[in-house]
């Protein structure tokens, strides 16, 4: 029942009550919570990182060598959370497909992709993708050739992963900002191709 919504009404009320008590006692402030909510509602645009890597070979090399440092060139940081994290970029090729999961909880590159989608947090995804990734990917509509090597990455510690998808064919003429519009969240988790 992890997708259940059966207690929504009463839970919404309980959350408001807990917030009010914590604000009254000064443990958190309303302004602080609103600022965090605003940041979460701002669409994350990690696609810019991928688009830049597609058009700038030197940046791509830096991203694959040390993604934590490379994304700072574009104004992103892995140090904005409660403790510093490391970012690793995983390069999809014609021969290798990468896909990311967190089996123990829901670790995810929020700094680049925003809060994760519900399926990423589901027991179905977390339990199955490490055992049968090809079957899981086919449920996303992604059918990989048998010759493609599949690498699953379980984000069980302080490392966060960003999949660098294959650039679609026929996009050589597109400018960087138009390329970014082609790049989907699922493409950067590894559950879609572009």
């Amino acid at each position: 029942m992890s997708e259940g919504h059966h207690h929504d009404g009463s839970i919404a009320q309980q959350v408001r009550e807990v917030e009010a008590e914590l604000e009254a006692s000064g443990i958190v402030s309303a302004a602080e919570l609103e600022a965090i909510l605003d940041a979460m509602r701002t669409p994350a645009d990690g696609a810019r990182v991928v688009a830049h890597a597609w058009v700038d070979a030197a940046f791509r090399e830096r991203l694959l060598g040390d993604a934590t440092a490379a994304i700072e060139e574009l104004g992103y940081s892995m140090h904005g959370g409660v403790r510093p994290q490391m970012l690793v970029a995983l390069e999809n090729t014609e021969a290798v497909h990468n896909v990311v999961v967190c089996t123990l909880c829901s670790c995810y590159p929020i700094a680049l992709l925003g809060p994760s989608p519900p399926w990423y947090k589901s027991e179905a995804y977390r339990s199955r993708v490490v055992r049968e990734p090809r079957a899981v990917l086919s449920e996303f509509g992604l059918e990989l050739a048998e010759t493609v090597e599949v690498r699953v990455w379980d984000a069980s510690a302080e490392t966060r992963y960003l999949v660098l998808p294959l650039r679609p064919r026929g996009t050589d003429e597109l400018a960087e900002e138009h390329l970014a519009a082609l790049i989907t969240r699922n493409g950067m988790i590894g559950t879609a191709s572009l």
Binding site: V130, E132, P133, E149, V150, R151, W153, S156
Partner: peptide
Amino acid sequence: GDHTVTVN
């Protein structure tokens, strides 16, 4: 299975 799983 023919894939790899990498864990930290």
